[in-house]
Nucleic acid binder design. Structure first.
Lengths: 339, 339
DNA sequence: CTGTTAGCGCATTCAG
DNA sequence: CTGAATGCGCTAACAG
């Protein structure tokens, strides 16, 4: 019979008396059974099964030095498939290490990020993995975090020198832009995030490097760097393509801008509007890119791998005390895939 | 100075002595400050800030009756944007209720689901939200879960009568199929999950109802119900479209099958293969559906809302003891969007 | 190999 | 309004 709400959970004592042993024998058995007679272990396990006992992990981690087995993960936007994959990668590695993840969504909100980090620490997480919102670093300083290791993913925080996993944003953008230049394009538009966003800045830099290297001037009238969502990206693409001297190719620095640009291009084709049908290079993959009405080159990468690497960095710190305390950076490669 | 790993966390005692009060005054202040002199509260808060103290939530929830503030969430595949949105919906509502989520990915694996549920209970979660993998229900029975409320999402578990949030799978599939019949199609293929998958069964039923109602016989040679991924879906579509009597329209029961079918259709168009260019009805939305080379009708729904509703069901149980204990089902509407 | 004692951090209870 | 004592579930450390 199920009792009313708030019924006390079973404790190790109940199991002990049911099995006719002391609580310590139960504890030892559950901890692996070292130094416990096999027949007693049997009895304990039987009692555990019959009663449906679950060990209270919170009580367990109360004693000092005991890890909680929890990792706090804060990402900016779970609705973005990119971060879903990222979270999956983290979860997989955490599971392999017997850890569980506490997940929070910051929505690019600094205050929310601070709240989450505080709460995670209050819950005694063994470590933190964070896709930081660009803001400041005060709440992430070691003296605030105590001895809880932190790994940053996707972005850095200015003035914070900790383990970080990044993509090769600059290199990927450079190579993608070069591929357009190689194809003979010289009017290449840019769609991306504002420069205060870490990846926004890096991806623009790759574009800039390629253009400069080939001696092609950057025309600021076909550079739009302030679109966070599909709607804004569509509008920016529209403004560019409505110009007399519209670009013949567009470099899009992320998935949201790519989708927006393609929506606008599709609209122009359906409506029979004149003007170029620009080739696209897209940082971030998306499904069915091969079915698009204009050729789309994709700068592809693996968000799940990024998550896995972040978790690996974290657990290397947790499991190896003798590790060099210097911050490490892992920069994952990206691939340029032609249509 | 940061101390070595395993340094004891700050406790309420340190804060108390720093502020020159007793631990209880700190505790009361942190609990809202009822019955504490304002000036003492000031001193306590100052000490908390200076020392960077975080209350130990685990110790706090150790006392009986105290909620942990944690909700266990297990979903089948975080890499699927659908479940990313679902998780986001849950997280949002949980945050509104001051709760945090423990997230696990089951990968459609029964054993993993059982592990996750055990661990969640061991961590004293206040409730569980689960997208169940079809398997059996033994580990989800009330007697195993103690008094931890459970909400199922997207799917039911046979023989388990608990709060559940579903989509209107049958109705959506029915209306989608009807729209094809109304357009004059009579050879309508079906791509979907096997019938042991809850939604696979329901979505097929909607298709079947519409066909039967209109007196159009279902041809089993153009019904493929065993594709779990894009690759398999592509192959199934290919087999159908290679037939003499290929379908002129395809009902696809989920996103993975839709992408697979469209890949195959795109290939046939690029390669100039003969045969029909089938119209598609897709259960599940996807981006840029309007740019596809064949008309795509989308049966759209909101995964985030599904997550929100699941969380709302859960918190209504947690926050309202007088709630009718009978299991509730919420079935969310879907919309049929023509191209 | 097994049991007893003690204490982790906090908040409820009861005294002042 | 404040403080001291007590115990939540569990396990190291120490007996036996």
């Amino acid at each position: 019979m199920s009792t009313t709400r708030g019924a006390r959970q079973l404790t190790i004592k109940e199991v002990a008396s049911h099995a006719g042993v002391s609580p310590m024998t139960v504890s030892r058995t559950l901890a692996g059974g070292r130094n416990v007679r096999p027949d007693l272990q049997e009895r304990v396990m039987a009692a555990v099964r019959e009663l449906g006992y679950y060990r209270n992990e919170n009580a367990r981690s109360l004693r000092p030095g005991q890890p909680s087995g929890l990792v706090g993960v804060a990402i900016t936007n779970l609705a973005n498939p990119y971060y879903g994959n990222f979270a999956l990668g983290v979860e997989e590695v955490a599971a392999e290490h017997g850890r569980r993840i506490l997940l929070g969504n910051t929505g690019e909100d600094d205050a929310r990020e601070r709240q989450l980090v505080s709460d995670f620490i209050g819950r005694q997480v063994d470590g933190l993995i964070l896709v930081p919102t660009s803001g400041d670093a005060a709440h992430l300083r070691p003296e605030r975090l105590g001895d809880v290791p932190l790994v940053l993913a996707s972005r850095r925080v200015p003035g914070l020198d900790v383990d970080t996993v990044l993509l090769d944003d600059v290199g990927g953008s450079y190579r993608g832009t070069i591929s357009l230049l190689d194809a003979g394009h010289t009017r290449i538009g840019f769609l991306g995030n504002r420069s205060s966003v870490f990846t926004g800045e890096r991806r623009y830099r790759g574009y800039e490097q390629a253009m400069t290297e080939r001696g092609v001037p950057i025309d600021p009238t076909i550079v739009a760097r302030d679109q966070q969502d599909v709607e804004a990206a569509s509008r920016a693409a529209r403004a560019m393509l409505d110009r007399e001297d519209a670009p013949t190719a567009i470099f899009s620095a992320n998935n949201r801008n790519t989708i927006g640009a393609l929506r606008e291009i599709g609209r122009r084709i359906r409506d029979g509007l004149p003007g170029p049908r620009p080739a696209i290079v897209s940082f971030d993959d998306f499904e069915l890119s091969e079915l698009m009405p204009v050729p789309v080159t994709v700068i592809d990468h693996d968000a799940r791998l990024l998550g896995r690497e972040a978790a690996i960095l974290l657990f290397s710190r947790l499991d190896d005390d003798s590790l060099d305390p210097a911050a490490r950076t892992v920069e994952l490669p990206v691939t340029v895939e032609h249509p």
